[in-house]
Amino acid sequence: MTKSPTMSYSILQRVLHWAMALLIFFNLLFTDGIEQWNRISKRGGELAASDAFSANIHAYVGISILALAVLRLILRKVQGVPPEQAEEPAIARLAAKVTHALLYLMFFIMPLSGIARYYFDVDTAGELHAEVFKVILWALIAVHIAGALAQRFYFRTDSLKRMTSGV
């Protein structure tokens, strides 16, 4: 049985997209607690309760992002996604596909590397997480947003509406 293509993302897919966006921005912007924990843990010092709380929030948000990413992949498989925009040039469609694949990869790499550092004391994972992967994720977010804006205002497709209003 062949599933008919969906013309828009489901409400749950859209909610998960925007919830993850908020959680990702939260963890990218508010890193003081986890950075303080990292500095103190490397020196073997005593961690203040407020620093431990902030570090735990960062960790729990990261774990939530990982769980939501798994759910998003399941929903993509079960509910499908809208077809590519035929009005866009092939290179733009390829760029969108590559960017989305790399974003999904980062949805797993970032939390898993953070978990490796925070819970299993793997310093290399923490360094990659905070220095390399973070920069890559910011770059991918910038490309993703620029692509969405290009789809809306340059190519004049409804891609952005499919992830906002569901039209």
Rank of each mutant, 00 (worst) to 15 (best):
L102M: 05
V78Q: 10
E88W: 01
E84Q: 12
S50I: 10
G80I: 12
K77R: 15
L137C: 12
A59F: 15
P111Y: 08
I136D: 05
G126R: 08
L102I: 04
A125M: 11
L112V: 07
I57N: 03
I109C: 05
F53Q: 11
I115P: 00
E84R: 07
A116T: 05
G126F: 13
H129I: 06
G62C: 06
F53P: 04
L68V: 07
I115G: 00
K97L: 09
Y60L: 14
A90H: 06
I115K: 06
A95K: 00
Y60S: 06
L137F: 14
K134S: 08
F120S: 01
P111D: 06
M110W: 11
F133Y: 14
L47K: 12
D51Q: 09
V81S: 04
A116L: 13
A139P: 06
N56V: 10
A49H: 10
V132L: 15
F107T: 14
S50L: 09
L103W: 00
A90G: 00
V132Y: 15
V122A: 11
S54Y: 13
V61I: 11
V122S: 03
M106K: 02
A142D: 04
P83K: 14
I91G: 00
V78W: 07
L73G: 15
L140M: 08
L66I: 08
L71E: 11
L94D: 09
R117V: 03
I65V: 14
N56F: 15
H100W: 05
Y60R: 12
